[in-house]
Nucleic acid binder design. Sequence first.
DNA 1: GCCGTTTTCGGCCCGACTGTTTTCAGTCG
Length: 605
Amino acid sequence: MTNLEIAELLRKVAAAYLILNENRFKIIAYERAADSVEHLTSEVKDLWNDGKLKEIPGVGETLQKHLDELFRTGHVRHFEEVLGKLPASIYPLLLVPGIGPKKAYKLVSELKLNKAQTVIEDLEKAAVGHKIAPMEGFGEKSEADILANIETYKKGAIKENRMVLSEADQVALDVINFVKAGGGVKHIDTLGSLRRQVSTIGDIDISVATTEPETVIERFITYPHQKLIEKGPTGASLLLHNGKQVDLRVQKPEAYGAMLQYFTGSKNHNIKLRSLALNQGKSLNEYGIKNTKTNKLSEYPTEKAFYEAIKLPWIPPELREDRGEIEAAIHGKLPHLVELPDIRGDLHIHSSYDLESSHDVGAQSADLYLSEAARLGYDYVGFSDHNPSVGNHTEEQIVEIMKRRKDDYEHKYYSWVQKVLKTRTPLRKASAGLPQMFLMCEVDILPDGKLALPDSAFDYVDAVVVSVHSSFNQSREVMTRRVVTALTSHEKVRIFGHPTTRLLGKREGVEYDWDLIFEACKKQNIALEINAHPSRLDLPDNIVYDAKKQNLRFSIDTDAHAVDQMILMKYGVSVARRGWATKHDIVNSQEYNDFKDWLVKGAKP
DNA sequence: GCCGTTTTCGGCCCGACTGTTTTCAGTCG
């Protein structure tokens, strides 16, 4: 059973308990355990195998017993007993927006919707036949809402509705400019998961500091949309034509700090923060901090002041996932996270130089990438074109191609340097020299773990990135062995590229026994890549977090296939930050000489 | 059902919005 399936099961039990009027804290406990399981890095089943179930936050003695029974026997008698008290057709309805456990139960029992497979269609028919409006607690409006929400559900179920970060940035920027143009805006920010830089974004959250809330909200709801979801004095929500939801909230400038904090989340971070505050006699909300004795509300214009009022330092948004950041803040142990200006070079770049590979070449020639690297103030850059295809060449031909490539690149580099120095192209960093070049290669890890570059061809590169580009469906064991073999097969293997090979919204990442991968990387002083391309963001942040705990190092690279993709570095930095990485955890935040010692001589980073 | 910098017992985040209600329940984030 996968983590997602287990989380779903726990949520079903929580929903059943809610309908059965169980103790509400028990319900919360099940929901919390479900959240926790869903966000876990490791498979619950593996933890069970290792006797580590109790390490899952929110899973106590009782749930451990239940999960143990689940893995031993395939089912949990207690869960089946609880779920069996209610018709199975209520659970699919919970996926429809606006329908929670209570409504689902009422609809199912009063309309006798007993077929779980067709319950949504059956409900739709009931609504069309005006069977819902006469029911107690429902009306004309809720009947129409149910129809509309079933539509939304169907659309969402068909196409993946989450955005990658760069796409969310675009949408947010457009809305922000539109709202700003309406006037009355003192500050405007994107909050929620976008501010926390989660790898995929569901809704866009925007907040505005203003003394004219009505003007701002009225302006916002004229942004082109297909549906006004809700509107009140504190904000509004729109469903855009592209199917994305945008929520806007307003707050007066004096109390804006509380709004920023509240709306940034995450939910679990806020819950923990509020319970911490309660212990100090303070109650947190989006307006400020209430003294629980006097009921007096204090306001804070900035987020920093808000955190300080509950005796905490300001916590970077990327950390706000309840992964230990509040405890770290209490003890003054928040990490000093890596920042974009710390990055000194990009090691995974594809130019248009044709290596007769079976993969894509880049869009422009090397000198244009070099100029962009100079503009970005980088100290070095590595060209990691794909290796020549193995199927179409003999070993001798591959060596010949690599040899010729080295000569060509070196020639290109020196003529670029000469050209730049002669024309005195203005560089961002006037004092620094031009970026140095490393000649690298992105080498396929073949299905059997061999590298797709013959040993004798390694003489013509400084170092290589190794990556999986085929046979993604191998088992976890085979895949782990494959990669470990590759990582330990040549001393010039320095970076493990886009390790999980995931493509957000398109392809799931492959699975490894990460402990073995980490061990191999450590042994060889290899860096795990954090691929910054918004559709990859690979390593995923939760694995960065685990790897960082085991003292692994990372290389943040763009995998640019065009010059204009080199600015995507910021998304990779976000992933590193979400994984708690500092400047010292990132190999390419080192200055040139130290970096070269690691890359070329294999020194400890 | 979980959990611990007041606690192994006694707490458990907080408010907005909506529809159907004459005061609240359900859902959501």
